[in-house]
């Protein structure tokens, strides 16, 4: 069965990120000049404007910065089976924030500061989505 949900379309800036996800590594950019870590990937560093950069592997650990619980599915036909689902902005240990889903967690358990770690959901042969699971208590 084909995958009906939106699939990321990698571009010249993001291709290494999605290739990393494909290999179950969460890669983020670090500026080679000033050391600022950035997400999403961009050609230039917004702090020092350098383009030289390294891809570093995030620890994949972070905390919930904010979250929502989607209860009304949009588009209906795509998300009807998924609601309620949690979308969160996760602050990674490296300091950048990344939107994702919190999985294996009920809406009642999610809270600000909840410690989470990345896992990868293989949605097709090329794309694996980084999603987050609450740390074991």
């Amino acid at each position: 069965m084909s995958y009906a949900k939106p699939l990321p379309v990698p571009d010249a800036d993001s291709r290494p990120f999605w290739e990393g996800c494909h290999h179950h590594k969460l890669l983020i950019m670090r500026c080679n000049r000033c050391g600022q870590v950035r997400f999403p990937p961009t050609t230039f560093c917004s702090r020092c404007q350098a383009h030289e950069h390294l891809w570093i592997e995030s620890t994949g650990r972070g905390r919930v910065f904010s979250w929502i619980v989607v209860r009304h599915p949009v588009p209906q036909e795509v998300y009807a089976e998924d609601v309620p689902y949690i979308v969160a902005v996760v602050e990674l240990e490296e300091g950048v924030r990344i939107p994702s889903n919190i999985i294996d967690c009920t809406p009642e358990l999610v809270r600000a500061g909840l410690p989470v770690h990345v896992v990868f959901r293989d949605v097709n042969d090329q794309i694996s989505l980084p999603v987050f699971r609450p740390d074991p208590r």
Partner: peptide, 16 residues
Amino acid sequence: IVAHGVNQYTAPYGWI
């Protein structure tokens, strides 16, 4: 619903 540009980091999670 096609996740181009910055949407590639949001739409795949049902954040649309």
